[in-house]
Computed example of a mutant assay.
Amino acid sequence: MILGKPNVGKSSLLNALAGFQRVIVTELPGTTRDTVEETVLVGSVRLRLVDTAGIRDASDQVEALGVARSLEAARGADLALLVCDGSRPLEPEDQEAMEAARLARHAVCLLNKQDLPCQVDRSCLPFETVLPVSAKDGTGLEALTPVLEALFGAGTFCDGSVLTNARQADAIRRAAEAMGRARDGLEDGFTPDAVLTDVEEAMEAMGELSGRTIREDITNRIFERFCVGK
């Protein structure tokens, strides 16, 4: 996931890594108010990046909810890309973003806006890896590839997603329970068609989680090798 205070270039970074304008970018702080996801390929590492609302004490209720969601997501992330504005001295909001980034399993600091004069001492950034970059023109982003490949290994899919509400958690629980019943049925000697209802229930629950519907032809392909009596 991508973290940082407002207007440091988080959305510009996501757009640069995605290779197209996935997120609206403006000069106004607080433009991003909710999480925005995109799968990108950095070298041989595939990431599901989440652009988050800028971390600050927001007076706007909608923005405040977005900030809270950013902090919640950081706790379960595999990777936090902390973005700092190198063209301005660090502020207390940067410190808050740093604390949030350290909640993730791994954290990499990107000192952004290197196309402008730098006003941040890299030694003040308490991270093992600090990369000077410019999300605006792409300068320095190539250095991110070996860092991520060292952290996750080549050909890895780094999924930084977390379950963000009770509905998603319930869908996972129902899917796991249904697959457990299907597995137990097969172990007890039931034929595959006998446990098909449980499998379909699990697939429907996962469809709720991903937003995708499960088509009948998928289950037909799964069981096409079996002869089901009618």
Rank of each mutant, 00 (worst) to 15 (best):
F157W: 06
S134F: 08
G155H: 07
A154G: 15
T156I: 11
P132H: 13
A171T: 05
E142Q: 15
A169R: 04
A154L: 14
D170M: 12
I172C: 09
D159M: 06
L148T: 02
A135K: 10
V147F: 07
A178V: 07
E149P: 02
L131G: 09
V147D: 07
G160W: 01
V130S: 07
L141D: 10
L144E: 07
A143T: 12
T164H: 02
L151K: 06
V162M: 09
K136F: 14
K136N: 09
G140V: 10
P146F: 11
K136S: 13
C158G: 06
P146M: 12
N165F: 01
G155I: 12
A143L: 13
F152T: 11
L163F: 00
N165I: 05
T164A: 10
V133M: 08
T139R: 15
T145R: 06
A143C: 08
E177D: 12
A143V: 11
A175C: 06
R173C: 11
L141I: 08
G140W: 09
E149M: 02
F152W: 04
A166K: 11
F157V: 14
A175P: 02
V130W: 04
G160M: 03
L141G: 04
D170L: 15
A169S: 03
T145V: 13
R174W: 01
T156W: 08
L163K: 00
R174V: 02
F157P: 05
L131R: 06
A175H: 02
V162K: 02
R167V: 14
S134Y: 09
A169P: 02
R173M: 08
E149A: 00
L131M: 14
L148W: 00
N165M: 02
Q168S: 12
D170V: 14
L131W: 11
S161M: 08
G160S: 10
G153D: 03
R167Y: 11
F157A: 08
V133R: 01
R167E: 14
D159C: 10
G155Q: 09
L163V: 00
D137C: 09
V130C: 05
E142G: 14
A175T: 10
G138E: 01
A166H: 13
V130I: 11
A150G: 10
S161I: 04
S161Y: 00
A175M: 02
L148N: 04
S161K: 08
A176W: 04
V147S: 01
K136V: 15
T139S: 13
D159F: 00
E177R: 12
R167F: 07
G155F: 09
F157E: 05
L144M: 05
G138I: 15
V162D: 01
V133N: 05
T145P: 00
R174Q: 05
G140F: 04
A166V: 15
T139Q: 14
G140D: 04
D170I: 14
Q168W: 00
P146W: 07
A176S: 04
V147T: 07
T156M: 11
N165P: 07
T145A: 07
G155L: 12
P132G: 10
D170N: 12
S134V: 02
T139Y: 13
V147W: 03
A143Y: 10
L151M: 06
A176D: 06
A176I: 09
L144A: 14
